[in-house]
Amino acid sequence: MNIFLHELKAYRKSTIIWLLSLIAIMVLFMSLFPSFHKDAGEFTKLLEGYPESLRKAIGLDLNNLFTIMGFYTYSLTFIVLVGAIQAMNLGTSIVSKEAREKTADFLLTKPVTRSTVITAKLMAAFVSLVITNIIYGAAAYGMASQVKVEDYSLKMFLLLSLSILWVQLLFLAIGIVMSVMIRKIKSVLTVSLATVFSFYFIGMIGATTGDASLRYLSPFKYFDPSEILKHSGYELSYVITGAVIIGIAISASYYVYAKKDIHAV
């Protein structure tokens, strides 16, 4: 419990900053909605001029872009990206920061097992992400209510908003397994940005070509907002794949970390 609280406190500042950025992007997008909605005809004409593959790559769906949920779906492609970076940063740093800041000797000479350490750190990261999503969700709901022109399904709104958390959990797991495998991570941001953007671009290519197998390669597309909107729910096969990846990554992290030599600085 003491490690958990200590870690939670350590992430407090960065969690607040990420949360504010997420809300800022959401507010920026949603505040554009009323004018988008008003001039829907002209925007459609303008956007039809774009090649279809480009529209697919950036997630523009002209059929529903001018409904509030459709517009929110479009903003989510960017919001999820930011959320993924937050989660990947957390995942990559929770274990590697002890090595980088040379505090591993302090923590691991205490009467605790390595799995206790990982559990506490994971729980702290998880709680930080959940808090981020709860506050973000409340803010997004408030904003959507402000700009809406027609009623929308609350269930749909929740399903869409929660896609942030699911993608974050995937990247948290990927981040932590990478951080225990790589001997020393000098810069967390480099590693996490590179990973997140690689997956993001794979997802974009997948969306353009419509290749279903490519979709499995990008965690972003497991909970793709436009697909959620289309199916009015999550797709089971991707939910299962996501859960399996998280399960494997987390168990591998426990295993590797327990066996790992902690080298002197």
Partner: peptide
Amino acid sequence: PDIKKEIGYLPSEVFYYDNMKVFDLLKY
């Protein structure tokens, strides 16, 4: 974990969480 309850260790180079206060670190 059991043994370490009764061990005190001082490394050659000490590094602690930089943004903590001395007393907070000791309490931790």
